[in-house]
Amino acid sequence: MFNNIPFLKRFSTPLYKNTIAFTGKKVLLMISWLPVAIIFNEHVAYVGKIEGSSMRPTMNPSSTSLQDWVLLWKFNVKDNLKLDDVILFRSPTNPNKVLCKRIKAVQGDIVSTRHPYPRETCAIPRNHLWAEGDNIHSIDSNNFGPISKGLVIGKATRIIWPPQRWGTDISKGGRECRMSLITREYDDVEEVKTE
């Protein structure tokens, strides 16, 4: 075909044919690695952008500064969710939305809730978490109750953008909401406080 149209005759030369074949092969090779990249993003690690002010001052410290990007660690995270971890999870009220909050209580704990939760306390069921934003104004477990671990997508381990926020410690924040550590009625409060 290329030989008939004079203008396109140059594309029939061996140089062009080889270049096209070469590029084609390289593109196919890259495509064949795409599922591996997808699996890595789904199950090992990904990058997430934090939007909103519910984790202030730990993340997005002011509305004028750049939004934080975090390294989202997914590998083996479901069994290692601990108190004070910052997690990203699917919102129970809107499955297309991903929220970023901090774990403030785990299964078995009794939590002293904040407005607008309809009850004073809440017992966390098996394999559920109580997630609160570091900021007082946040939509979190005080609105939708404890969340199942099955909704957790991953753990935010460190801030990777903007560069001046590298190395920020995000491991502490939020209020203490577990009844056993708030009230002074327990005899062994000294023992508990040293942890």
């Binding site: 129970p92 939760y117 309809p118 009850r119 069921p125 559920h128 609105n143 939708f144 109750g145 404890p146 969340i147 199942s148």
Partner: peptide, 8 residues
């Protein structure tokens, strides 16, 4: 767990 749902 769903948010606390009242029984009516």
């Amino acid at each position: 767990m769903a948010p606390p749902t009242p029984i009516l």
